Simulated assay, not measured.
Amino acid sequence: MMYDNLLNISEAAKLLGVSPSTLRRLEKNGYIEEYGLKVIYTPGGQRRYMTDEIQQLFSNQGFSGQIGFGEKPALLIRDLTIAFTDPHSQLSINVENQIEATKQLVEAAQEHHIPIIFSQTIYQSDHKVSRLWCTKFPSLQILDPQSTWTNLHPELSGYSYDIINPTVYITDIHNEEVNTFLKEKDVDTLILAGATTSGSIRATAVDALQSGYRVMIPKEAVGDRNQSLQNSTLLDLNARYADVISLDKLLKNMKT
C-alpha cells in the first residue's frame, strides 16, 4: 500500500523532537510551514508524512552527513534465519527482497575477498543476558540452538562464511571472537544486512560506530516487522549512526 512508505504522526514527531500535538497545532491547510512538511491524509483521515522530506530536514539541520567507505570492509549478516524469515514464525520480519539482496552482497564479498560474518540470535536459559532479554522479549524462547528456527535461510546456507556466530547478545560487537577477527583483518567498515532493523541492526550500528567502524547499511538488505517501523528506523540510523544507501551503490563501493 502507498501509505506503508510514509511515517505516521507519532513517528514523525519523535524524529523531529516534538510532540504529535505540536505537529497538529502547526499544521495549516495540509502543510507545516515551520518544518517544510506536506501532510498526507489516508482515506481514514490519519496523517502521514513523507520520509524524504524529513530526511531533507535532517540534512538542512546538520544531520545525515556521509561517513563514507573506508579501505577494508567486512560484511556482517544478522538473523536471516528461519525464525526471522518464515511467515509462520512469531519473530518473522516483513520479507521482501532482503534474501536476494544479501545473496548479492555475499557473492560480491567473496569475489572481492571481503570477510563475511553470519550471526544467529540464540536463546540459552542458563545465560543471564539471554534470560534477561527473553524476559523483555519472550518470543526469543523459540531460538533454541538445536531447533530448526536458528538454521540459516536455505538460500544463504550454501555459502562459505569466515565466522558463523551464534550469540545471545543484541549487538554483534559484544563478542570477543568477532572483535578479534575484525581487528586481525584491519577492518574499518562494517556492512550490515539482516534483521531486525530496529533491533540488532540498530544496536550493532551504534556499537560499531562507537568502536571506530564506518557503518554502511544497504536498505534493501535489512528488514523489520512492518514498513512503518522500517522507514523510521532507517531514517534515524542515517541521521545519526550510519550511511543508509542503496544496494547498487553499496555493490559499486565493494568493487573499488
Rank of each mutant, 00 (worst) to 15 (best):
G44M: 11
G44D: 12
G44N: 13
G44I: 07
G45M: 09
G45R: 09
Q46C: 04
Q46P: 06
R47H: 12
R48F: 03
Y49M: 07
Y49G: 08
M50Y: 12
M50V: 15
T51Q: 08
T51D: 06
T51C: 06
T51P: 01
D52S: 12
D52A: 13
D52W: 04
E53R: 11
E53V: 09
I54G: 01
I54Q: 00
Q56G: 13
Q56R: 14
F58K: 13
S59W: 04
S59M: 13
S59L: 10
S59Q: 15
S59I: 13
N60F: 00
N60H: 08
N60G: 12
Q61W: 12
G62D: 08
G62W: 02
F63E: 06
F63G: 04
F63K: 15
F63V: 02
F63A: 04
S64R: 14
G65M: 08
G65S: 11
G65F: 10
G65Q: 11
Q66I: 14
I67M: 14
I67Q: 15
G68H: 04
G68S: 04
F69L: 07
G70L: 09
E71K: 07
E71D: 08
K72D: 03
K72T: 11
P73D: 07
A74P: 10
A74C: 10
A74D: 09
L75R: 08
L75H: 02
L75M: 08
L75P: 09
L75I: 05
L76K: 01
L76C: 03
I77K: 05
I77F: 05
I77A: 02
I77R: 05
R78D: 01
R78C: 00
R78S: 05
D79S: 02
L80C: 09
T81I: 11
T81A: 03
T81Y: 02
I82K: 12
I82Q: 13
A83M: 05
A83Y: 01
A83V: 04
F84D: 00
F84K: 00
F84N: 00
T85S: 11
T85V: 10
D86F: 03
D86R: 02
P87F: 02
P87I: 02
H88W: 06
H88E: 13
S89L: 03
S89E: 00
S89N: 02
S89V: 01
Q90L: 06
Q90N: 08
Q90F: 03
L91A: 01
L91R: 01
L91V: 00
L91I: 02
S92K: 06
S92W: 01
S92Y: 03
S92C: 15
I93P: 00
I93V: 14
I93Q: 09
I93D: 05
N94D: 14
N94H: 10
N94S: 13
N94P: 00
N94Y: 05
N94A: 11
V95C: 06
V95I: 15
V95K: 10
V95S: 07
E96I: 10
E96V: 12
E96Q: 13
N97F: 11
N97M: 13
N97I: 10
N97A: 15
N97K: 15
Q98P: 14
Q98I: 15
Q98G: 11
I99D: 10
I99G: 12
E100P: 09
E100G: 10
A101T: 05
A101Y: 06
A101N: 09
T102R: 06
T102W: 07
K103H: 08
K103I: 15
K103N: 12
K103Y: 07
K103V: 14
K103S: 12
K103W: 06
Q104M: 07
Q104G: 04
L105C: 10
L105W: 13
